[in-house]
C-alpha cells in the first residue's frame, strides 16, 4: 500500500478505536440482553453478540476461532434458540423481588480473582511467553515435512492432536443429535401464549 508510510500511525490508532468500540458494543449488547424481557429480541441480540465476538477474534488474529464463532454462534445457535422459543413463552417473567447481594458478591469476587490471575500472564504477543516456547517451534520447523499442509493449525488439529479432535467431534456430534431430538420431537405441540398483559405481548406477536 503506497500511502502506508504517512497513514501508518492513523491506521494503528484506528485499529485501537475499532477494538474499543467493538468491546463497548459487546458490553452494551450484554446489558441489553439482561434487561430485555422479550426473548425474541434477546435471541436477535445474541446473534449480534456472537458476530461482535467473531470480529474480536479476527482482530486478535484467531481466524479459525472466528470462523467457528460465526458459524456456530451467529448461525446455528440463533436457529436453535428460535426452535426453542417455539416451545416456550416469548416473554421472560419478571424476577421476584430479592436483593441480589450474594450473587453480586460471588460475581465480583470471582471476577477480581480472574483479573488477579491475568496479572501473571505474559503480555499479548510476547514471543517469550511459555506457549511459544514449548512445542510451537517444533510444529513450525517440522510440520511441513511431517504432515504437509501449509496451514500449521490444520496440521496440529488434524494430525498432532488427531485423537483430541476426534473426541471433540464425537462430543459435538452427540450434542447435535440430542438437540435435534429435543427440538424436533416436541415441536409439533402448539405454541403456548400467556394472556396479553399490556403492550409487550402484542408487540411480540406482531
Amino acid at each position: 500500500m503506497p500511502a502506508a508510510a504517512p497513514g501508518g500511525r492513523t491506521d494503528a490508532a484506528m485499529e485501537q478505536i475499532i477494538d474499543i468500540v467493538l468491546l463497548a458494543f459487546m458490553v452494551v449488547v450484554a446489558i441489553a440482553m439482561i434487561r430485555l424481557r422479550n426473548l425474541y429480541a434477546v435471541v436477535m441480540l445474541s446473534g449480534i453478540y456472537s458476530l461482535l465476538s467473531a470480529s474480536m477474534f479476527v482482530v486478535l488474529d484467531a481466524v479459525d476461532v472466528a470462523f467457528t464463532e460465526a458459524a456456530v454462534g451467529a448461525g446455528i445457535a440463533t436457529v436453535l434458540m428460535l426452535g426453542t422459543l417455539a416451545l416456550t413463552f416469548r416473554e421472560e417473567r419478571p424476577p421476584k423481588r430479592r436483593t441480589p447481594l450474594l450473587p453480586l458478591a460471588v460475581v465480583v469476587v470471582t471476577g477480581a480473582a480472574l483479573v488477579y490471575g491475568t496479572l501473571d500472564m505474559p503480555h499479548y504477543g510476547d514471543p517469550e511467553a511459555p506457549i511459544h516456547q514449548h512445542v510451537a517451534p517444533r510444529y513450525i520447523a517440522d510440520s511441513p515435512l511431517e504432515v504437509g499442509p501449509p496451514n500449521m493449525v490444520t496440521s496440529v488439529l488434524a494430525s498432532y492432536r488427531g485423537y483430541d479432535t476426534l473426541g471433540e467431534t464425537t462430543v459435538i456430534f452427540t450434542a447435535g443429535i440430542a438437540v435435534l431430538v429435543l427440538l424436533s420431537g416436541v415441536t409439533r405441540r402448539r405454541q403456548r401464549r400467556r394472556p396479553a398483559r399490556g403492550d409487550e405481548s402484542r408487540e411480540a406477536r406482531r
Binding site: L51, E203, R206
Partner: peptide, 24 residues
C-alpha cells in the same frame, strides 16, 4: 444496534441484525 435494542417490532430487529451483520 440501537434499532435492535429498541425494537419495537420483530421485523425491526431482524433488519437490524441483518444490517449489523453486513456492517461486520
Amino acid at each position: 444496534l440501537l434499532r435492535a435494542v429498541r425494537g419495537p417490532t420483530v421485523y425491526d430487529r431482524i433488519v437490524a441484525v441483518n444490517v449489523f451483520g453486513t456492517m461486520t
